[in-house]
Measured scan of single mutants.
Amino acid sequence: MAAGGDHGSPDSYRSPLASRYASPEMCFVFSDRYKFRTWRQLWLWLAEAEQTLGLPITDEQIQEMKSNLENIDFKMAAEEEKRLRHDVMAHVHTFGHCCPKAAGIIHLGATSCYVGDNTDLIILRNALDLLLPKLARVISRLADFAKERASLPTLGFTHFQPAQLTTVGKRCCLWIQDLCMDLQNLKRVRDDLRFRGVKGTTGTQASFLQLFEGDDHKVEQLDKMVTEKAGFKRAFIITGQTYTRKVDIEVLSVLASLGASVHKICTDIRLLANLKEMEEPFEKQQIGSSAMPYKRNPMRSERCCSLARHLMTLVMDPLQTASVQWFERTLDDSANRRICLAEAFLTADTILNTLQNISEGLVVYPKVIERRIRQELPFMATENIIMAMVKAGGSRQDCHEKIRVLSQQAASVVKQEGGDNDLIERIQVDAYFSPIHSQLDHLLDPSSFTGRASQQVQRFLEEEVYPLLKPYESVMKVKAELCL
């Protein structure tokens, strides 16, 4: 049975990233139509530049190519590739079939990587351009969430054990800070992308030097003109047959890092959902379990974690691919890159769409948070109580021993009897502590235990987050809708 299948058929496997999760716009960027249309555009740009620099290419040939950029006979191309065992030459023939007058000058002087690699770089750039505003929107939604809850005390956790208090907004800023680093890295790697350009079979530009009869300047002009037509500021000066596969490492490393950030955020949300302090959106008709109707599973956060793990592992592909590119190139890269580049971007696209949807509907339960604080705060307040007693004339050592005994009794009630923490009640009825009984409410005010959390939130948002989001103001209103 021949390899390949009808990918629109229910009898043929289709990647869930495309069929179930990723956005239509990201799927289109990695589609065959987008790819092969870009090949034709690159052939047109090459012909236009070659004509401008004096090669015998007519206006009629150029116009014929322009008129057929979208006229792609995919069936013919597939048949040609089956016959020739070469995808680029299959599309040269297919393009030439609908451009008979231009057929002889299509791909003039070029090698397969002229269309293959340059198209990949265009796709990487455009895919990054799709991700950047999506990530900015996630940051914006979380920034709104953090600002609104900047002063809401909550129990902090280290080692997932109760620690000092923080605020809900401050905790959210930990998430935002990681995503801001990801946004900066995505922008950097996007701006650092260079075009492969017009380089020939081993990167020496020998074929173009021959076409222009040894004119170095025209060869350099050709490279520059096509690079500018493709919208790049610069091209690699040095290439082998391909652009260095280190570029793929750079791009997928940034995406993998984004995956790590999203995994951490969504894990926190899942843990908070278990504590009943916070939940992701839950639709009115949504079913959490087929057997347990009360369940409210954090399905979206779980999906993000599941896909983020996949995204983090994909960076190993370009690392290994770059390491086995012998001399000017081997074909070890080809099949692998067809999979890992598309999957990385479709996965990143999915987790950003999902995280935006989550961040637009996060639900906080202040009463649950308050109750958990009441359970733990008495123990945390013991040092403040000791200091207040010393100020009232008591002995630190005597007070410490009193607190120690009462704390152990209260802990026994919590752990052995399943009761509430009654340390404060014990202190309130103990005559030894009568000098500070009137101060206990103040000493137990949760806001006095959150330090500068709310001020940190305000400063972080104003100095770091809002300036970073400013270039994306025009796209901030787009909502994230999930079908599944």
Score class of each variant (00 low, 15 high):
A392L: 07
V226D: 00
L209T: 13
D317H: 04
A260K: 03
Q161F: 00
G419R: 14
A110R: 01
G5P: 07
S448G: 15
I358N: 12
F160D: 04
S9D: 11
S112L: 00
F28T: 10
P100G: 07
H107M: 01
A273I: 07
V168M: 08
I436M: 07
P298N: 02
I57Y: 00
S67A: 12
Q455K: 09
G240I: 06
G197F: 00
S407N: 04
G4L: 15
L258R: 02
D182M: 00
E462S: 13
D144L: 15
G156P: 03
Q210C: 06
D120A: 07
K218T: 08
T158Q: 00
A411Y: 05
F379S: 04
R338H: 01
I351N: 02
S290Q: 01
V413H: 15
R40D: 00
H86D: 02
T350Q: 12
G4R: 14
D87W: 04
T154H: 08
P467M: 10
K134C: 12
E328Q: 02
E79N: 11
V88A: 10
N336W: 03
F157E: 02
Y34A: 13
E473H: 13
S447R: 14
G259Y: 02
P100E: 11
R426E: 07
L42K: 05
E370M: 15
H91V: 06
K246M: 03
L468V: 12
L46C: 08
N71D: 14
R40M: 00
H93R: 14
D6F: 08
A3D: 15
V390N: 05
A260T: 01
P153V: 07
F232G: 03
G200V: 00
T201A: 03
V189S: 12
A273T: 14
R404Y: 11
A110M: 04
D182N: 01
E464L: 06
L482W: 07
F74V: 15
A273Y: 01
L69S: 09
R303H: 01
Y472H: 13
F95G: 00
D215K: 15
T321P: 03
G451W: 04
V251S: 09
D223A: 07
E302N: 00
E283S: 15
D223M: 06
R396M: 03
G240M: 05
F236L: 11
R137A: 15
R33I: 10
I339A: 09
R303D: 00
E25C: 09
A260L: 04
K246V: 03
A78Y: 13
R188F: 06
T154R: 00
Q325G: 12
K199P: 00
H159W: 01
L124F: 07
F74I: 15
R426H: 06
D11T: 08
N71E: 13
L331Q: 04
S323V: 03
F208L: 15
L311I: 12
I339P: 02
G419V: 07
E383C: 05
M387P: 01
I176G: 04
D422Q: 07
V168A: 07
K367C: 08
D117I: 00
H86K: 00
F449H: 07
Q241W: 02
K101Q: 08
V364Y: 03
Y21A: 00
R303W: 00
Q397I: 08
F74G: 14
F327H: 08
V390D: 03
K187L: 08
G203D: 00
S407Y: 02
A273Q: 09
R309G: 03
E79S: 11
R234I: 10
G214V: 06
H93Q: 15
E417G: 12
D398L: 15
C399Q: 04
L271R: 02
K246G: 03
V465D: 02
T227E: 02
V29R: 07
F327T: 12
G197V: 01
K233S: 11
R190Y: 08
R404D: 00
R196H: 15
V414I: 15
I122R: 01
T227V: 08
A90V: 10
F95M: 10
N68V: 09
T313Y: 08
V363G: 05
K187R: 13
T347H: 08
A388T: 07
E279G: 06
C98S: 12
E280N: 00
C27G: 12
E343D: 15
F236Q: 06
I427A: 06
E79P: 07
I369Q: 08
I424G: 13
G451L: 04
E280D: 08
S438F: 09
D349A: 13
S261V: 05
V465Q: 06
A78I: 09
V226Q: 02
S253P: 03
I72S: 07
A308E: 02
F212P: 04
H217P: 11
E376D: 10
R303K: 06
L179G: 06
R234V: 09
K402Y: 08
D6A: 13
L406T: 08
A381R: 04
V254G: 11
D87Y: 01
G231K: 11
D32G: 13
L252C: 14
T244E: 00
T119R: 02
T58F: 11
F95L: 08
I427W: 05
P378A: 04
Y365M: 10
A90M: 02
V115C: 09
Q320P: 01
Q409R: 12
E283T: 14
T154C: 09
D430E: 14
F145I: 04
D144Q: 15
S257Q: 10
L193I: 14
T201S: 05
P298D: 02
I386Y: 04
V92E: 07
R85M: 15
I373T: 07
Y243R: 03
V88R: 00
I373R: 04
L44P: 00
R374Y: 06
V88K: 01
K199T: 06
L135S: 10
K82I: 15
G419S: 10
I369V: 12
A348K: 01
V247H: 12
Y21T: 00
L258T: 09
Y472A: 11
R40L: 00
L46Y: 03
V88W: 00
H442L: 13
T321C: 11
R137K: 14
I369R: 04
L255F: 13
R404V: 08
P293D: 02
S253E: 07
T166M: 10
L84G: 08
L307E: 03
A410Y: 04
M389S: 07
E425G: 11
